[in-house]
Design a protein around this nucleic acid. Structure first.
Lengths: 93, 93
DNA sequence: CAGTATCCGAAATGATACTG
DNA sequence: CAGTATCATTTCGGATACTG
């Protein structure tokens, strides 16, 4: 929990489990997250080795986020949680 | 995450997965948790149907906390997380 | 496009004292 | 033993403006 327990971390990792995403793409895919929060959580996930940040030196800038191999080891855990949620949380608040 | 994402909820559930515990027993088993935090988190877990609170009308009071059947369905998910942690988090901060 | 920097209010948490 | 009440503090998160 200390590494994946941030307010948006699971959501971010879950998005990146599907495929690589750019910053704005990620922001649009997560309802209500601010640039600040997205940046902060991504930095922490990066520091903890879950997420890889790839910067393309071009104009306009392009930055892609993806799961590292280490981050991918966490996918089964997320799937277990997702499956539990689907089974037990019918109408979520 | 919205139901088990509280700061101490996973820890509490993990303790109760082993066996029923009394309030002070639970507090002693969790380093640094205050009575206030423990009470609040337990109340929420109770409200969400994970935890059963059993009061024995005696002096001194005795209150036991245990997982409900519903709460027990979450044990495999916690085990998945615990196993992941053991495998990937050697020396935790 | 992909961020940073700054400020500020809200919410979470902690400390402490009190209670049936 | 198992809490509750109150207050202080810390942390978090949102709004806004600015940048390469």
């Amino acid at each position: 929990m200390s590494v994946v327990g941030g307010k948006w971390k699971m959501t971010i990792l879950w998005r990146l489990a599907r495929d690589t995403k750019r910053f704005n793409e990620l922001q649009r895919s997560i309802e209500n997250i601010t640039r600040k929060m997205l940046t902060e959580q991504l930095r922490e996930l990066e520091r903890d080795g879950f997420v890889l940040r790839t910067v393309y030196s071009q104009v306009p800038p392009k930055v892609e986020y993806s799961l590292t191999d280490y981050g991918k080891t966490f996918i089964p855990v997320m799937q277990a949680m997702a499956q539990w949620g689907l089974t037990h949380l019918d109408s979520e608040a």
